[in-house]
Structures are given as C-alpha cells and as structure tokens.
C-alpha cells in the first residue's frame, strides 16, 4: 500500500473508531504508520505547528486561533492568543499526577496499546512492570518488549515508543 493510501486508510479507521470508543485511540494510532501516529498524538503535532507559527511571527505569542479539522482528537490549541499559561484540552486526564502510573483513563490505554504500538507513537503513561535502562547515555523505560523514551512535552512527561536501542 502506498504511504498516502495508508494514511487515508488510517484516517478513515480513526474517523469510524474514535467517536465510538475514545479510549481505544492509541490502539488505533498504533495501527497507523509512524507519521500518522505522530500527527494525531496529543500535543505533539500541535507543538510543532505552534513553533513555526511563533517563528513566523517574529517570536510573538499572539496568534489567530487555528482549527485543524480534527474534532476527534482535540488537543491543546495550536495557537497561543498571547499569554503564557493557557487553559488546555487533552485526550485523557492523567497529566496532573506524577505518582499515578496509569490512572483509570490511562491504564487501559497504555496496556491495550503496548503490544502493538509503532515506533513514534506517544503515550502519556506506561503499562505496569517497566524498568528504567540507560543505553549510550539515553534513558529508556522498557516495558515487556516495548521501549519508551521519556520526554517533557511542555510540563508533562510523555513516553515515545522507540525501536530497541540495543
């Protein structure tokens, strides 16, 4: 299948699946090609657009609200109307607790997705029974056969699925 057809198929699957079962989003994401997964993962693609918008505006934070026609997964607004700390819209609620490893929303997501997550997919919490490992100075969380690289997405810790670094 060509990359474009792959993306179209993935988006079609998303449009069908998401309204029905929001908690299955990452599973659906996992089945999509890497660029699609990244594009539709909370916060990430938005952050990229935000960066560019700011640069184009000479570093100013003011910006016109933008809508990307993606009602199913609505993440933080891509624009920043001008002020620093903004209200937010997220897909699952679990960011606000460092201690909860997989809250009642996140656990099902992470566990369900773990077996099939493609490299580049991003989750906001880990499945149970992970261990921290460093390779070449980079820290990973290894959960079963899946490797995650923790990163700060703004103030939130997210985990990017990466290929086995060994």
């Amino acid at each position: 299948m060509s990359p474009i057809r792959h993306i179209v198929a993935a988006l079609t699957a998303l449009s069908i699946a998401l309204p029905v079962a929001p908690l299955v989003q990452p599973v659906v994401l996992a089945a999509t090609a890497l660029p699609v997964a990244v594009l539709l993962t909370p916060g990430m693609a938005e952050a990229g657009r935000m960066d560019r918008a700011r640069f184009h505006r000479g570093g100013r934070h003011h910006g016109r609200p933008r809508h990307h026609g993606r009602p199913a997964i609505h993440t933080r607004p891509a624009h920043r109307p001008g002020y620093g700390y903004r209200p937010r819209r997220v897909d699952v609620h679990h960011h606000y607790n460092d201690r909860r490893r997989g809250g009642r929303f996140a656990a099902g997501v992470a566990v369900g997705a773990a077996a099939t997550l493609a490299a580049g997919a991003i989750v906001s919490s880990l499945p149970p029974r992970c261990s921290g490992v460093s390779y070449d100075g980079v820290f990973y969380q290894r959960c079963g056969g899946t490797w995650y690289a923790p990163r700060y997405d703004g103030p939130e810790v997210v985990y990017v699925v990466v290929p086995d670094p060994r």
Binding site: A47, M50, D51, H61, Y83, G84, Y85, Y152, G154, P155
Partner: peptide, 14 residues
Amino acid sequence: AATYGYDVPLSDLF
C-alpha cells in the same frame, strides 16, 4: 515556549 514547547508558569507577567 517557542523552541521547547514549555510555558513557564505566569509567563504573562513577563
């Protein structure tokens, strides 16, 4: 904010 995607709390004040 622009480069790292991190909004410093209360950055409006600055």
